[in-house]
Simulated scan of single mutants.
Amino acid sequence: MAIAVASSRRVLIATAGTDAESTFEIGSVSKALTGLLYSDALERGVVSPTTTLGEVLPLDGFGPIAAVSLGSLAVHRSGLPRLAPGMSVLRRSLAFSIRGANPYGETVAELVEQTRGVRVGSPRPRYSNLGFQLLGHATASADGRGYGRLLHEVLGPRYSTPSRQDDLDDADLQGASRLGRLVEPWVGEALAPAGGIRASVSTIGGLLRSILDHTAPGLTALRPVADFSPGVRIGVAWITVPYRGRTITWHNGATGGFSSWIGIDREAGVGVAVLSARHGAVDRPGFRLLEEIATSGSAVLG
């Protein structure tokens, strides 16, 4: 496990059983990074909220999905299902449960093919991994770069988006299930924007600091623009909620062997990240630590 606590001036890191440079699967915290990339692309005029998937991805003849806008994907109001309908979800879930197998692994071309004829529902709030996979790859395609290259060139080279297990090295931790069984890494080119990024705690700590000192690209992603559920607002992936009298902007993540949480108290000017190489929610300690830091941040962070 590793924890980062940040202000605009410094980052404090604590680790247990690892070091500050080993990488974790950050799961759906990847969506928060995709939010920054998309918002940065908006600011640069590469895409607009009304840009459709069919304008930037090869979806001719695929049906209604081609008309889905990037703006609707950004706030989980696209009407797309949680996962691509062509994934054979039950078979993959069984393989993971029995063998700890990676349920992903598609290329971007395979992901696009899985969306052929997908039914697009009503534009109500509905969390969609598929939606953020497509948002990230659509943004990268519009910018003329693959997603991994866009991530490196906009947010920095210390993130990785492994497509195969062979892409991993000694710095990449292996995760374990809730019961402690080692599981296969969740890798795959298509997965990256929604859940396939790896990062170290020092890298995530640096991201927190850059958000708090307003140097991170795409900061408008954190600004809540739509209701997501009662009392909950959403920006581009980033969720904003009231918590014990404070306002917290956050996202969490989980893969088969990892769990993650990142949160910011923008009024207090502090942030926290919790990364674990074991499956099991870390939201509660993340929220509690951020509350403690927010109320005594000047003493802790100097």
Rank of each mutant, 00 (worst) to 15 (best):
G156E: 02
G196F: 04
I65S: 12
V225T: 14
I3W: 00
G35H: 04
A221Y: 01
Y104P: 00
L37Q: 02
G280T: 11
V187L: 06
P162G: 00
A199G: 03
A176Q: 13
G86L: 10
A237P: 03
L59Y: 03
A273V: 14
G105W: 08
G205K: 04
G121T: 05
R10G: 05
L191T: 08
L173P: 01
F62P: 05
F62G: 05
I65R: 04
Q133H: 11
I65P: 07
H152Y: 08
R209P: 10
V274C: 08
H152M: 10
Q174E: 13
R91P: 03
L42A: 02
R244K: 15
P123W: 02
S202K: 12
L36W: 07
S163T: 13
P230Q: 09
E267A: 14
M1L: 04
D169F: 00
D60G: 13
S298E: 15
D283M: 09
R266S: 08
V154G: 06
R91M: 11
L151D: 01
A101M: 02
L90F: 12
A237H: 14
S39N: 12
I211Y: 07
S69V: 02
L191G: 00
F287V: 05
L53A: 08
S97Q: 13
G54T: 12
P217H: 09
I3D: 01
P81I: 05
R126P: 01
S69Y: 00
E55G: 11
T203D: 11
A273E: 05
V108D: 01
P185S: 07
E189K: 08
L73R: 04
I13F: 08
S93T: 13
A41P: 11
G286V: 03
E21D: 15
S97W: 06
F228Q: 09
R278L: 10
P49Q: 01
T139R: 12
G180F: 03
G256M: 13
E21T: 15
R164A: 11
A109R: 12
I65D: 10
A226S: 12
V272I: 12
G131R: 10
L42F: 04
D40Q: 15
A216L: 06
P230N: 11
I234E: 05
A109L: 02
S78V: 09
S69F: 01
G235W: 08
I248L: 13
A32R: 02
